[in-house]
């Protein structure tokens, strides 16, 4: 469904992504793990066109092109078919929870307002926040804001939703409610690519784990295999370090 080949990206001469290839199939829940600074955020941002890539090829939603050759129309197509959940939520601060969700439906998708509100209420229901629909972001806890962020993404019914460390900015006691929502999504067949430090999520919820370091994919595979019997020394070391800290 989504295929990335040889994706490259640098900042001011520093190569950050050194040729990444990923295959995402419908219904996949892929966890991307790896040390901080390894390029995980950059990877999600280049795939979703928030950042321009320097090289590589994308096959997705009818677009089949080198990244450098993407035109405005391709970029629109890609953006319309992905969802993005940000580390720091990025809810529209001047909109209520409900409006945060209807905004894209009404303005970008041209859905009728009444229809959009119905979809948005459904989405809020799924993340357990129907009773907060008229709250502004500043009136919501971090966990609630992130759940609205997730509702905003699912309401658009994208092919795949990217999550960039969705729980990293949260107080520890709020992590659970967000993970729970993500687990429900995964169970309902939503295609998800999740950058995370939550090893429990990577191990128990996803069907594939990708370990990234220094702009490379070091190793990927079945969570059981990666966690119990990694082939690469770097993976082993990363997992030992991170699990020791939990």
């Amino acid at each position: 469904m989504l295929t990335i080949e040889g994706l490259k990206k640098g900042y001011e001469g520093n190569e950050i992504l050194k040729g990444i290839s990923i295959d995402v199939n419908k219904g996949d829940v892929i966890s991307i793990i790896g040390p901080s600074g390894s390029g995980k955020t950059t990877l999600l941002r280049t795939i979703t066109t928030l950042e321009a890539a320097d090289g590589g090829h994308i096959t997705f939603a009818g677009v089949d092109k080198d990244f450098e050759k993407l035109n405005g129309k391709d970029i629109n197509t890609i953006r319309r078919n992905v969802g993005f959940v940000f580390q720091n939520y990025n809810l529209f601060n001047n909109k209520t929870a409900l409006q945060n969700i209807t905004e894209g439906l009404i303005v970008a998708r041209k859905v009728k307002k009444s229809e959009a509100e119905k979809i948005a209420l459904d989405a809020l229901e799924r993340v357990g926040l129907s009773d907060r629909k008229n709250h502004y972001p500043s009136q919501l806890s971090g966990g609630q804001q992130q759940r609205v962020g997730i509702a905003r993404a699912i309401a658009l019914n994208p092919e795949v939703i990217f999550f960039d460390e969705p729980t990293s900015a949260l107080d520890p006691e709020l992590v659970g409610e967000v993970l729970k929502v993500m687990q429900d999504l995964a169970n309902s067949g939503t295609t998800m690519v999740v950058v995370t430090h939550q090893m429990s999520f990577a191990r128990d919820v996803s069907n594939r784990v990708i370990f990234m370091a220094d702009g490379h994919i070091v190793e990927q595979g079945d969570p059981k295999k990666i966690f119990e019997n990694p082939s690469e020394e770097r993976t082993k070391k990363f997992l030992t370090d991170i699990l020791a800290n939990v």
Binding site: T48, L50, N76, R79, R80, V82, G83, F84, F86, N90, L91, F92, N93, N94, K95, E103, G104, V107, A108, R109, R152, A153, L156
Partner: peptide, 19 residues
Amino acid sequence: QMEAGLMVGMTPFQTFYRI
């Protein structure tokens, strides 16, 4: 705020104007 607008499919101008 701009990035969130783009990721729900709004154009840069729509996001600028509305958000």
